[in-house]
Structures are given as C-alpha cells and as structure tokens.
Amino acid sequence: MIELKPGAVPDIPLLWSLRTRAVRQLCASHYSPEQIDIWSESPPPESYLRLLASGCALVAEQEGERLGYGILDRQSGEVIALFVEPAEAGKGIGKRLMQGLDGIAAQEGFTRLYLYASLNAADFYRAMGFVAMREEAYLHPSAITLRSLYMERVLPMNSLH
C-alpha cells in the first residue's frame, strides 16, 4: 500500500536523485539531449529548503521505498514538483500524490492550483483535471529554456473544508 509521508529537509538529496532519474528517462521523449543533460545536472533550488521546512512536500513510499514526491507552495498554490520513479510511472503514484497535494491546498484555503508542466507530463495533468492555459518558454533555474504548458485546475469541492 502506498503511504504519503511529509518530506523533510534531510530528504532533499534522495528526492533530487529521484527527480534526476525521472528527468533523464521520462522527459527525453520531449526535450533534446542537451536540454536533458543541463536540466538533470542542475542542483536543487534553494527554494526546496524553504518548501520542505514548511511542510509543503509529500513523499510516496511503499515498504520503505521512495516511489515519488510532490511539492506544493503553500503561499502561492503552485505545484512546484511532482516526480515518480520512472519504473513506477503509470501505477497511480502521481495521482495519489496529487490527491495529497489537494489536501494541503484545501488546508490553505486554495480553490485553484496551477503549475508549469513539462510536455511529457501534460497528459497526466490533463487527466488530473488541469487545463492548459498557454504554452510558455519556462526559464529553468539552470538557465535553460524549456517548452512547457501553464496549467490550472479548480480543486474538487470534496477536498475543500
């Protein structure tokens, strides 16, 4: 059974390693090898310290193994990250993480979430109810530009308190 646990600052290296595997394996179908190399070699952004310290991250685990993680910025309602171990993609882990992020968003009083989706993840987010508002050139912290979709979603009424 998949459990969602709060992410913590000491988890950053392991989460970032998971993210790097996901970028290398799952994003390669939509981005150039040069983009993938630069993207995957970038260090964790400084914002991860703040976000994980403030309880914005959820880690999906099964039998002690980390299968994915998601981060919601409690101040803005932006889904900052949602990554799943490549070998576990398509098994409902991302959906479970999104449901957990919905719960955090509801606690904060958000009625809408937004994110910048990599092109390979757009169909997943559409299945989660996100709507693409526009295509954008996302300036990644590593200084590369990645084509992405700015997407929004109204939270399900049953997640609001």
Rank of each mutant, 00 (worst) to 15 (best):
P43V: 15
L155Y: 04
L14N: 10
A127S: 14
F130C: 07
A137D: 13
P10H: 02
A127C: 09
I38M: 06
G64R: 02
R21S: 15
R21V: 14
E34R: 14
I38K: 08
R126W: 05
S29L: 07
P6M: 05
A105N: 04
E135T: 13
L67T: 12
E78V: 05
G92P: 07
A121K: 08
G100R: 04
M157A: 10
E135R: 12
A28D: 03
T145M: 08
Y150Q: 11
S17D: 14
I93S: 14
G92I: 15
E152G: 02
L4H: 00
L18M: 09
L119F: 04
L18F: 02
M98C: 14
H140Q: 01
E78A: 06
S32W: 08
Q99G: 14
D37S: 15
P86Q: 10
W16E: 13
E152L: 03
D11T: 12
C27Y: 06
S54M: 10
L51A: 08
A137Q: 10
S159L: 09
T20R: 15
L18C: 04
G7A: 08
P33V: 00
V59S: 10
Y116R: 10
M133T: 10
R147G: 13
Q35Y: 01
R112F: 03
I80Y: 04
L146N: 01
P156H: 11
R19K: 14
E88Y: 09
N158P: 04
G55Y: 02
G70W: 00
L18Q: 03
A87G: 11
R24P: 02
S76T: 15
C56I: 01
A28R: 03
H161Y: 04
L113P: 01
A57V: 11
A132V: 05
E41F: 09
L139Y: 06
I71G: 05
S54F: 06
Y31L: 02
Y125K: 06
H30E: 10
R112W: 04
R74Y: 01
